[in-house]
Structures are given as structure tokens and as C-alpha cells.
Amino acid sequence: MAGMRKRVEPIPGEPLPHGILGACADIQDVDDVHELLGVEWLSLGCCPVNVWRDPCLSDESPGEESPGALLKEFCRPTSEHADPITVYAGAECSTMGWSYAEARTHAEASLALGEQAAVEAGFWSDTLAMTAADLTPDAGPVDIAQGVAALEGCLAEQYGGRGVLHVPAGVAALLGCCNLVREDPASGNLRTLVGNCAITGAGYSAMNTGPGNLPADPGTAWLYITGPVVIRRGPTMTVPDRPSASVNTRTNDRRVLVERTYVVATTCFVCAIQVVTSP
């Protein structure tokens, strides 16, 4: 009976709408290979803005030196960097079953659907989990509302501008229990009441590790918050780029690989906290 089945078109899919390649990130398509090898920059907006109190209006004596020279603080910008994340999808088939064009189409469709989750997993493990300050109290994980509040407080104190909340997709439903995020009608992205954008990522769910990439305990999850996210995205590359080179003559199998390089950057500070996901 299986031989009588009719071949039809595959069922198409689409990435989750609020992932890292959604509206929360500034995505720039670049062709410069140097940018795709990694980038570095001087931090902007990460220095504190202080309140100066004139000592002449207080009981303190400024002495012989200028009050400004004595009391005003100066901040040296720090160098920041982001490394490349290369994601790929490969198709393997018998040369008797698929042509090179069909194998390439299959690999391209796989990449289009899954690259967002792969970029999320790479950014989570390479950047978020490796640079975050852990806000989890000594008493242990907190509920999700307390977790979001602590993260937004951390970002507000360290940065002061709008940032991005990074949430595993498996935890996203809990954000609705306390009205923690709302969909912005203008942009279509998720925003907290403070105004930070929220990414709910499938790749984040796959990782779900804390600082140092330690796995989350059962019934818990990790949330992170960062400054703005800028993503440099290269073009897709197909390997090999011609039919003959895709065939392994020993096995008569065809292999086609499609890959793309991303450089995901954020700035200033990363905070993390562990939250409870089940009673």
C-alpha cells in the first residue's frame, strides 16, 4: 500500500515570531567578510551619569583646588566585542532519489526554519551564560514576576536605557500569568511594562543554562537581560556549489550543506536570575 501513496508538497513551517531574529534586534545584512569574523567597539552609554552637589552650598570646604576637579568623576569607555556564530543545515540523500537542486532546496528550507533557534542557542551559551551576573538570591529561585522585576531593576541601574529580556520559549506562557509582557501593536514585538523588549526563543529553551553554562535544576529556568542587541548577518553559502562535487561516489550518496554566519552583539551589562516554572 505504501507504494500507492501520492507524493505531495512538504508541509511548510515558519520560525517563532518573537525569537532573536524578530523585531527586538537590529538586524544588519552585511557582505564584508571582516565584520563576519567578529567585531569590537567602545561601549556607549555604559558610564554612569552622576549628580554633582556644589560644595559651596554645603558645609564642606572645597579648599584651594577647583571643586569640579575634586568631586566630579570621569569614566573610561571599555572595549567590547562579539564573535561569529555560524549555523548550518545539511541534506543527505541517494542520488537515485534526489537531484542536486532538490537536495539544495531541502537544505535551504531547513536553514530558513531552524537558523533562528540555532543563533539563539549560540548566543545564549557563548555570550549570555558566560558574561552574566547572577541575581538569584541565596534562598533559591524566585517566581517569574520577581525574576523579571529583579532583572529590569539590574538593567535600569547599570544601563538606564531600553534593553532586551531573554526568555526560553518553554517559559513564555508564564509571562502572561501576571501580565508581565504585552504585544506592541505598532511593532508587533513583546514589551514589558517598563518598556524592555522580550525575546522568547526556542534555542533558549534548548539550552536553559545558568552562568557558566550550568544546567538548570528540574522545575526551574534561567532568564537573562541585556542592553540592545545588534545582529550582523552574512549571506547564505551553499557547499558544494555545483552538482558533481556533492556526490560521494563510494556510497552514491549526495550531500549539500547550506550555512550562514551571524555576529550577535549586546552592550554594557548582562544579568541573570533563576526562576521557578513548576510548584
Rank of each mutant, 00 (worst) to 15 (best):
L151W: 03
N179C: 13
V164Q: 06
P15Q: 15
T249V: 13
P84V: 04
A133F: 12
E14C: 07
E65R: 15
G45A: 05
L16P: 06
S61W: 13
R232T: 14
T95C: 04
W41C: 02
A186M: 08
V148T: 03
P211Q: 08
P77Y: 02
E92D: 15
D126C: 01
T95W: 00
L111F: 12
G188S: 11
A91T: 11
P243G: 15
V229L: 14
V263E: 05
A173R: 00
E64S: 09
F74S: 14
L111R: 07
C93E: 01
E73H: 03
S205H: 00
G90F: 07
G188V: 01
G160N: 06
E115D: 14
N248Y: 00
G45C: 07
A112L: 09
C268S: 09
I20C: 11
T127Q: 03
Y100E: 09
F269I: 04
V229A: 11
E259S: 15
D241A: 15
V51R: 06
L42D: 14
V181H: 10
R182W: 10
V39G: 05
D143Q: 10
G22M: 07
R191T: 03
A150F: 04
L111Y: 10
A150I: 02
R242P: 10
A198P: 12
G140M: 01
P12S: 05
A139P: 04
I199E: 02
G161Y: 07
G19D: 08
R254P: 03
M207Y: 03
Y159R: 03
C93T: 02
E9Q: 10
G97A: 15
A198M: 10
A149F: 04
W222M: 09
S58L: 12
P12R: 06
E64W: 12
E115H: 14
K72H: 08
L214H: 06
V148D: 08
G201K: 00
E115M: 13
P137H: 04
H106K: 12
T249K: 07
C46I: 00
P17K: 13
F123K: 08
L155Q: 13
A129G: 13
G153W: 01
D59S: 14
R104Q: 15
V39K: 08
L113P: 06
G188M: 07
C46L: 03
G219Y: 02
S244T: 05
C47D: 08
S125G: 12
G160P: 09
A132W: 02
C177L: 14
S61A: 10
V51Y: 02
P211Y: 08
V264F: 09
P168T: 00
Q116E: 13
V264H: 11
A132I: 01
T226L: 08
A202E: 04
G140C: 03
E14A: 14
A265H: 05
V33Q: 02
L214T: 11
A206C: 01
N248H: 00
Y88K: 13
E80P: 14
A245K: 10
